[in-house]
Write a protein that binds this DNA or RNA. Structure first.
Lengths: 213, 213
DNA sequence: CAAGAACATCTAACAGTGTTATATTTTATA
DNA sequence: TATAAAATATAACACTGTTAGATGTTCTTG
């Protein structure tokens, strides 16, 4: 039995090594330079070994995408926990989102189709769950903020996507170097965008907010 | 002399045919399926002919990116012109932006690094100008809206990027199929996002707005 | 302990990629 | 019509993702 578990452990480790090699390669030279052969060389195996773990290069990238969403979720949750109030929580999560993209651009790229695999099958269970987990964290924070602000938050799902879209849009533009210097500090831009978003939501309620008891 | 001009015309036409072939191929099968050889076959020449017009595949894509920004500029200007007031103009431009992405996803992708060429040299003159032109149209519309709203618009550049980021973020998420059905109609989402953005800007002015004379 | 089955891994190949050096054809000039 | 020049094609290089088939290595069973 113990030999079998060792085998399984080794398999797990090799799988992790493959994923890490792909990441390191992408971090160092960009996703365009990542090839099956280079990954294999890095883990000191022959190329076909990759296909023992992943059906294709694309599936390998999807696996990294899952890992990315999991790591992002951790960061978002941390930011949420450390904040003093619901508004600060959302701002902290916004900067955490951006910081994550800065710290792990190769993961952020693979998570958002910025690596050349824009369209791919996301219907796998683990993929869906990893993405949903990250979404739920933000969704919960928005809902909490709404209650705290004495607003009836309707269209929670929509507000989630507005926030996600805002953050992703700015982050992608910044990463691609699309912003002129006049746009100032990127992090400040993210904060401004989030503050503006919240202001718009506050003001969106012309109907009387739910009275506090 | 007339033979020379014919040659030049043919060259221009061939260049255009190459670009169109690349676009058509991408529209039909995605950018991943676009290769120099397939483009060449489509224009009925041998592969190396492409390099008479473009230094590399990447430069060919950058040329299409320029074309994309030019077309987008036209659409934005049209939307601006057709609107009744500055607020409507911004909303119309937002939907025009999204509609452009819907109509020409292959161009939108190449314009925003969603085709596998996320990082590339954008410092060429024609590239910078095409991008700046599109930006200026939106920038002008925001400035006009500010005056119309009796707001002193400071940080115009930043507001431009907030709008651009919002639109691009949502568009990219929608294109990649990242939105659940609960998010509702994509176009409505774009409108909502823009309205929210403007609300935030209106409310951003706690200092007294510039008085109307 | 030896033989055979199962497993793990590799080698070699296929069809395709971007790109370039070289050859060939076509066109224009003398 | 011969020659220079321009336009285009062929063939190759080094690389890509992927797979079939061969080769070892380990385990199970007689």
């Amino acid at each position: 039995m113990t030999v079998k578990t060792r085998r399984e452990r080794e398999k797990r480790e090799l799988r992790a090594a493959i994923l890490n090699s792909a990441r390191e390669l992408a971090a160092a030279e960009g996703w365009g330079a990542v090839s099956i052969r280079k990954i294999a060389e890095r883990v000191e195996y022959s190329p076909p070994i990759i296909y023992e773990f992943f059906d294709s290069k694309e599936r390998l990238l999807v696996a990294l995408m899952v890992e990315g969403f999991e790591r992002l979720s951790v960061r978002l949750a941390e930011a949420h926990r450390a904040a003093n109030d619901p508004r600060a929580a959302l701002l902290a999560m916004a900067t955490a989102y951006f910081q994550f993209a800065q710290d792990s651009p190769e993961l952020y790229q693979v998570m958002n189709g910025l690596d050349g695999v824009y369209f791919c099958d996301l219907s796998e269970d683990t993929t869906l769950r990893a993405m949903a987990a990250a979404r739920e964290i933000v969704k919960g924070a928005i809902a909490t903020w709404g209650i705290w602000q004495n607003l009836r938050i309707e269209d929670l799902e929509i507000k989630l996507y507005l926030m996600w879209g805002t953050l992703h849009g700015l982050t992608a533009l910044i990463m691609a170097g699309r912003l002129s210097d006049e746009a100032g500090d990127p992090r400040a831009l993210i904060v401004t965008a989030t503050e503006n978003l919240l202001r718009g939501w506050e003001r969106g309620f012309t109907s009387p907010p739910t009275p506090s008891p």
